[in-house]
Design a protein around this nucleic acid. Sequence first.
DNA 1: AATATATATCGATAATTCCCGATATACCTA
DNA 2: TAGGTATATCGGGAATTATCGATATATATT
Lengths: 100, 100
Amino acid sequence: MNQVEVFKALGNKNRLQILTWLKDPEQHFIDYTPACKDVDVGVCVGHIHKKSGLTQSTISEYLAVLHRVGLVSATRIGQWTYYKRNEETISALGNLIDTI
Amino acid sequence: MNQVEVFKALGNKNRLQILTWLKDPEQHFIDYTPACKDVDVGVCVGHIHKKSGLTQSTISEYLAVLHRVGLVSATRIGQWTYYKRNEETISALGNLIDTI
DNA sequence: AATATATATCGATAATTCCCGATATACCTA
DNA sequence: TAGGTATATCGGGAATTATCGATATATATT
């Protein structure tokens, strides 16, 4: 994990917001339904986009940033890409704070 | 604590480095001696400046950033300003990660 | 193959950050 | 008060980031 890059990724109100939305998709995304029965793959770009008020390209870019630093996972299913919090990385970050 | 601002402050290699140096002044600063017998006030700007390889103004600015977001305390004694890690804020940040 | 939809990427501009040198301010000592 | 040292602030150029609209790519449907 690249500490500096992770902190940069978190140093943006909108990206931080997305991460918290992803904590509880049912609560934050009106028309959310899980894409898979058995595996939780998260929320598709379009839902996040609609909720955000930002453009589609910006949201796509932000999700790519969060993915690049490992804060979310990405799963392509058909024409949708679903993003989901990577809790391992997030809690690892919590521990890492102690080593700073 | 302003989350976004704290993450921005940490999203810089040099500021992160300074924070880790301040963890153990004896180890990282050759000619370090505590400024006070009874209270630990940390390390003065000049020492950090010399070790960093960056200019005095940049270091002063970086320390101001870290101070503004609460990651370090600042103590002026005579003509020196001493900066010290604010462990409370840092561990609070660790907890805050869980709420992200 | 043609079209429609979802997402990703490209190119651009404005805003912000990085980092500098120069200068100002604060404090100390003589 | 004058001069010296430590730190802070100012002004600026280069680099990066934020965010957009336009376009490309991938997938699905007919």
